[in-house]
Amino acid sequence: MAKYRRKLPQLGGGTFITDGGMETVLIFHDGIELPHFAAFVLLASEDGRDRMRAYYRRYLDIARRHATGFLLDSPTWRANADWGHRLGYSRAALKAANEEAIGLLSELRGDFERPGMPAVISGAIGPRGDGYKAGRMAADEAEDYHSEQISTFAGTEADMVSAYTLTGTGEAIGIARAARAHGMPCAISFTVETDGRLASGRSLEEAIETTDAATDGTPAYYMINCAHPAHFETALDPSRGWAKRIAGIRANASQMSHAALDESETLDAGDPADLGRRYRQLMTRMPQLNILGGCCGTDHRHVAAICEACLPQAMSA
């Protein structure tokens, strides 16, 4: 049974950290081949599951040192129907992989949690298409498409679902509606280009306000991921209601554009200390931010630097 589905602890305040750029860490640091950038394929073997456990424990150790909560996102960003088909997964095998992912996180939660240090299990959802290109799915189509994966998560110990790297409001609306239909709290995370706008040209303000209006404010909160803070920090107006709906940041380490990152054969790990300072500046402007992690190019060093820069003891120093 889901532990926090009826009351997400991150909505009550306190800092929650999460992991970094899972796929880039596994590929560039651990030397693991991930077809179609899909981490969930590792769940198919005991060795792969051990590698996933080792990956998460690096970040759980950081949370334990800083006595924070943790958002355990599943390695299922690519585990939806179209990508599963490309990877040779049947519908039954894909369902089993999503269930296995949550089972692994449940095991990790049991090892991590202490009083005042909750671990929320989130079923991670990725876009149907390319997270670097404008999303053009209509809301009804997206609701139907993503419902299968969300339904699977609803039958597990997942407390919520989190949709990452979304580039269009239609897909965001559809996911939020599907989550509501299956009784799952959801977070919606958009990605932006170097101009702070979605690939479609929409502003974050338009994307969040449109999604909220079409879903009666269904998302528990919003996030920004897969972009460097330099790409979106000036696009945020902390005084506006839409900006106050943003509770989490999972930024890239690199200031490169999505197009440049897509073509790069090497990993740009950026500057962890600078990234931590930028997070601190964002939190000073937007004190509601309490979910902190990384995306492409980040690893445990970046998340540790973010904690050093942003947690209360650091901010009072």
Rank of each mutant, 00 (worst) to 15 (best):
L282D: 12
V120I: 08
D130H: 13
F37G: 06
I32N: 10
T76Q: 04
F70E: 10
D144N: 10
A305R: 04
A101L: 03
D130G: 05
D19M: 03
G248V: 01
Y132H: 13
Q288Y: 03
V192R: 05
A178W: 02
G84R: 04
R285E: 11
Q288F: 02
M1Q: 12
L236R: 12
L261G: 11
I150Q: 13
T18C: 11
I125G: 06
A273G: 03
F190Y: 15
C295V: 03
Y145G: 14
Q149G: 10
F28E: 14
A247T: 05
T215G: 05
D73H: 04
R136N: 11
D130P: 00
G241N: 05
E23V: 07
D140H: 08
V120H: 10
T167G: 08
A96I: 00
L261I: 13
A304E: 15
M137T: 09
N252L: 03
T215D: 07
G126W: 02
A214I: 02
L108D: 14
G12H: 13
R114D: 12
W242V: 02
I17N: 06
A93F: 01
A63Y: 07
Q255I: 03
H231S: 15
D47V: 05
G170T: 06
T18P: 00
I125Y: 02
N98E: 09
A187D: 04
Q255S: 09
A139H: 05
N252G: 12
G293F: 00
H300L: 03
P118G: 15
A163S: 13
A139Y: 04
H182G: 06
D73E: 15
R180Y: 04
Y55V: 05
A260L: 03
R202K: 14
T218S: 09
G170N: 06
A39F: 02
H302S: 14
